[in-house]
Amino acid sequence: MSEETQMDTLAYSSRMLYWAPLGKLLFCVLVLIANLVTESILVPFITLAIGLSMMAYSTNFKIPFFIAIALLEALAILIIGAGLISISGESGNVLWESHFLWINIYMTDDSFNKAWLVLFRGVAGMAVMMGFATSTPIPHLSQALRQVHLPVEIVELIVLIYRYGFLLLERMEIMYHAAACRMGFNGFLRSIKTTASIGVGIFISSTNMADKAQTALSCRNYKGYFPLYRAPAKTGLKWILFSALVCAAMIIFGLETEGIVNMYELFKGVLF
């Protein structure tokens, strides 16, 4: 099973499955905004706490292994990114400098602080997004998007891609096995060629599938949109108020605490 299917399974068994998807989305977006608005390094910790508790509650306090792996992967990328930011300082006191080929590298106290902030924000943001993803399957998301009057075409495209994505993934796995049975991955060049052939095969079968689906849709009297039988829970006023409140509280907290913690000062004795 691919990660996509696992995520889907997780979302469908979430304890937050029937919460208003739009409400969840609004909440997460506002938290993410609050996460970015102020320069306080303490705000990302609140965001992280919110994200982790969402994830924990949604998955019944059992965070699956593959999500932990995904988070670690993201963390690794963020650390590299933060490292790069920290050595591309333009202002402030130079802490360390070096030359690499023709590039001059500076680490300043500003860039050092900025790198930490980006790292914390990134990790916290990931956690919140994961919290949303583990509780909201794509179909629910598309329903939410429909409620905010996103063009029908786009929403339906999302639904269909989701639906046929799984089928194509299934086929791709079978074809991959079949190619392995015939030694299609024996050597680098051959692997590339085989992967291309599988791609072509999947492309052909997806056009076939689209063709047949069109016929089948007409057979079932498709009138240009997917009617909904069970609309998701409506996003009530309490969702909006609650989200706005949390967001405002975080921003105020952020403004109040801006500059309270300086990472450079913290590490001064240890590193420099």
Binding site: I174, A178, R182, G184, T194, G201, S205
Partner: peptide, 10 residues
């Protein structure tokens, strides 16, 4: 395999 289209590559 059951479906020949899954194993034709050329």
């Amino acid at each position: 395999l059951q479906n020949p289209d899954d194993q034709v590559f050329e």
